[in-house]
Design a protein around this nucleic acid. Structure first.
Lengths: 190, 190
DNA sequence: ACCTGAACACCGTTCAAGT
DNA sequence: ACCTGAACACCGTTCAAGT
């Protein structure tokens, strides 16, 4: 009865488990998805999950990775469009998984795997923003300007904003970045 | 042996439990603090906690409330100082409890009590920012400008930024708000 | 009203055993 | 190498019983 040594290649099986995890994590949330229920959905014993993933956090990271890959791939076709439009697209694309975004942040302090992933995620998006700008930002303020843009993006994903405010937020962030990129450094007073 | 009907007034006892919860939540984190351990620290049975708080989330909210009250009280003495300085103060004051901030966000989708608290927290800080500005922001962009400032603040608390970037971020956000408050609405192109 | 000791239904994870 | 059934040590929460 137990189907051991199934002929399914490892990568394929892993992908099956990942697909089940992705669906449950997004629909029901990370906390509400127990390993037992997830295993049942995937048609395996809870134990089996641990053959393919170290723990639940690594499963979460793998799901996030898969999603981010797809996101960046889709985003590639948006190059050339205004930055505000790109931001708007990203926000609407990430809103459905806002719970996962919040969960990742909550687990940064708990899991090494999540912390590492989170750092990489920010590096990716900071690079993405930097690339889109018409000119280089004055070096002293660059990290802060990019950080503000990234945090605004994260905030817009994880918080409830109406459509109009979301549009304005994209415009505000894009304006700010363009301004910082095109204007020379002005020494702040005081 | 069991000390029932202790003569300690309800509010005082509640405060004791709250103090224990605050310490453990901050030092060890919310998830790492089990109700059992928390009860032991406070010198009671786990059960007793439920006499004073509906559940663990309500305990979390009560801790956050206590902290926010203290924060706003201390902040009151900063009125009149530059906005960037106030931001910097808030960030450094909130960084030690960054894990709690992240936890709150993660539980917004899980707990009604947390969701309600979170909404109130944002309302408070949006009002605080609005009050500090020299002039009214053009009404159409105001919610977005305030949202960007709030999200930047949250991001700076929950993410690792070096001191210099943190300073610059405060300056960027303050600049942005002042600019939006003093300049008339400029219709965006396109 | 307040508090206990004991239980309940779970949870993520691991282990001995099978093929 | 892969997978199972059964267990382990917990978890948040509740309940009957005491004062």
């Amino acid at each position: 009865m137990p189907r051991n040594r199934r002929p399914v290649p490892r990568e394929e099986k892993r992908e099956e488990l990942l697909a089940a995890a992705a669906e449950l994590f997004v629909v029901d949330g990370y906390e509400a998805t127990s390993m037992t229920r997830l295993a049942r959905r995937a048609g395996v014993t809870p134990n089996t999950l641990y053959w393919y993933f170290r723990d639940k956090d690594e499963l979460l990271v793998a799901v996030a990775d898969r999603f981010t890959d797809a996101l960046l791939h889709e985003h590639a076709s948006l190059t050339g469009r205004p930055l505000a439009a790109q931001l708007s697209w990203l926000i609407h694309r990430l809103r459905p998984v806002r719970h996962l975004v919040a969960t990742m942040h909550g687990r940064v302090a708990v899991s090494d795997a999540v912390r590492t992933w989170h750092t990489g995620f920010h590096t990716t998006f900071e690079a993405l923003f930097t690339r889109q700008l018409p000119g280089p930002i004055a070096t002293d303020r660059r990290p802060a300007e990019i950080a503000v843009a990234t945090f605004a993006l994260e905030g817009a994903i994880t918080h409830d904003l109406d459509d109009e405010t979301t549009r304005q937020l994209c415009a505000v962030v894009a304006d700010r970045l363009h301004h910082a990129a095109t204007v020379a450094t002005t020494p702040r007073p005081e």
